[in-house]
Design a protein around this nucleic acid. Structure first.
Lengths: 168, 168
DNA sequence: CCTACCGATCGGTAGG
DNA sequence: CCTACCGATCGGTAGG
């Protein structure tokens, strides 16, 4: 019988269990059992449970952040930037549904100072969205509206999409 | 110095901490510390941590369920039932934001067999919403659409509202 | 990838 | 509402 667990398998199983039971409720022994290895062996793949969360969270958060940065620095008109933003959200959510689930459900369990860094990253992201919306209002392409509320509306669509994808 | 913690205080503190840290990450000692009592004293107010979660979850879930049952058995037209449903959601979310937060974030931590009962309750709720939408389509009051997706759209609005209320 | 552990913490109980 | 605990579990380490 082949042993040898790959790092990719370890990550996939971790993400699946985090989504099913939540980060806090998932123990290293849960993950190990699913991989048919001992709990101690997990530390060949990762430094700590917290480092695992950190890596997964910033991996997907950075993809969102970088994607939106590229859109913002483009020469698109505001409305086209908005379309590109929705496209980015759909694409990332479809490609990384479990990462997005972790992002939405378990970012609170990041420990300081990384938690603050994460929140700052998210606030920058929201700020970029709001700026695009405000620019669209100023050019007249968007009817006057509360940019803050519109930002929430756009961002909450991410949550909705991943919920349908993962089927909760 | 007055001692004496009321049960209402205990519930309020528990809900606040569950929202801030999540159910699993909140320990009985966290709650006790916030109330300036010993952890053991908590068991004068509740039988177990699981029973606390159970009580809070079904309290709010039943309010949603009963509210929608009343709407469904009314003689309103489908579109007016839909309006009453949105009204119900807004009202309960504004009145019980922390209960709703717990409902959205921590229902997974209910243990069997109560977890299954909870999921069944939610599926009935979703089924009632879907039926109202389907009735509205049949009478022509609503344009033809995918009732399942429309149901998700209505229900996801709950999440969005409580997120704004609690400010995450 | 495993054996053999360990210190810390957690939910909870006994008995006032 | 407290003191005094306890069994179970958890993240993690040492040393192969």
């Amino acid at each position: 019988m082949e042993r040898k667990t790959t790092r990719a398998q370890f990550i996939a199983v971790s993400l699946k269990l985090f989504q099913q039971k939540g980060f806090k409720a998932t123990t290293m022994r849960d993950i190990a059992q699913e991989l048919n290895i001992e709990a101690a062996t997990i530390y060949n793949y990762i430094k700590s449970k917290q480092a695992l969360l950190d890596g997964l969270l910033f991996e997907i958060a950075n993809r969102f952040h970088e994607g939106l940065s590229n859109i913002e620095s483009s020469s698109y008109a505001p409305v086209d930037k908005l379309k590109a933003l929705v496209n980015l959200n759909v694409r990332l959510t479809v490609e990384y549904p479990y990462h997005v689930a972790l992002l939405v459900n378990d970012w609170k369990h990041l420990e300081e100072p990384r938690r603050s860094a994460f929140v700052k990253n998210r606030e920058e992201y929201e700020g970029m969205v709001r700026q695009i919306i405000q620019a669209g209002i100023k050019t007249g392409a968007l009817r006057p509206m509360d940019a803050e509320i519109a930002t929430y509306a756009v961002l909450s669509s991410i949550r909705w999409l991943f919920l349908s994808l993962i089927h909760i």
